[in-house]
Amino acid sequence: MHALKKYLSSSIGRKQLMGFTGMVWYGFLLAHLVGNLGMLAGAERFNQYGHLLLHTIAELIIPTEVILVVSILAHVYLAITLSLENKRARPVAYEVKKSSSKNKNSYLMMMTGTAILVFIIIHIANFRFAGAGLGNVMPTVTYAGVEMKDLYSNMMRAFSQWWYMAGYLVVFTLIFSHLAHGFQSSFQSLGFNHPKYTPLVKAAGFAYAALICGGFASLAVWAFLQHGGTP
């Protein structure tokens, strides 16, 4: 018990936990993107898919949501406590300080992370719990006698507003920066850095971030073009 506690309070243990909790979200983002592709199949298919997630396999979804929430809370908590300690480790700043690091995204992690957290909160409020028109309630539809949330029109209404889509694109640029650095950073923290594979890990991180962010962003643009300006 002492050993585990010591590990979880050590600088390296916490950093590894940070990488691990981040990795959990990498997996989730891919699943989320694949789900969103369903909107290309039209309103009924997409709403049926949402209904399936929320009702038919709720036993699977609820634990997943719990894991995601616990991961992100741990991730945020660690980010805050580690940075506070780092401030304390250098109380007096240098008069002049140059950066020679090639890791530019690493300096943005705190900023991009904070923006992403705000986004996630708004996003969940809009889509998981209510209507997307900020304050609207979730509309419903009935297919074959089953009433369900009309996620499709909820989403289309949101993305028909240009400012909503534009904000979304900005957020995904930030997410790209966070994911691209986070991927290789997690590998490093978990102890994997190998001259043969690390270039591949870095490239994979960029590719994955591009896939995820490009995917979500193009769906947003697609949705905007469907009903652009006519909510």
Partner: peptide
């Protein structure tokens, strides 16, 4: 402080020790 993988150490090290050792 706690390492955040900025790799400034590697750039500054007079003996050019790689961050591979940190991994």
């Amino acid at each position: 402080g706690n390492c955040r993988n900025f790799y400034e150490c590697e750039a500054a090290c007079p003996k050019e020790i790689s961050v591979e050792h940190i991994a």
